[in-house]
Amino acid sequence: MFLSRVKSAVVMLAVVVMLGMGLAGSSWLALAVPPPDRTEPRASDAGKTPARIPADQFDKLRALIKPLPGGFDDIPWMTDLWEARKKAAAEGKPLLVWVGDGHPLGWT
């Protein structure tokens, strides 16, 4: 009688432990699966894929993208104040200093 109760208790304990492991395993598995927050763009969402750029349009396209001639890019801006001061002092010229909150010639 006592032994059968012990056996029953052991079996119950084993079931509880296995169930617990199983639940724990489920949780672990759930964490291992990447959360579904990365949605691959659907084909219909994708932008129009352009045709290959024709070689004979290369120069024209570059000219469209780049700044227009005659703008501030044509001025030979230096980008180091100390070097510019040295040059100005050596050549006897004033500085023209352009300061932006973000680099005027780059990402701003």
């Binding site: 801006w77 104040l81 100390w82 510019a84 010229k93 004033p94 023209l96 932006g100 005027p104």
Partner: peptide, 25 residues
């Protein structure tokens, strides 16, 4: 500008914070 000046372009965020002689100036 090209003829009479030495033009230089700078980033305020960098020049105002840099810890060297150029920043001090």
């Amino acid at each position: 500008v090209k003829e009479h000046f030495v033009p230089v372009a700078l980033n305020l965020q960098v020049e105002a914070d840099r810890k060297d002689a150029q920043g001090e100036f």
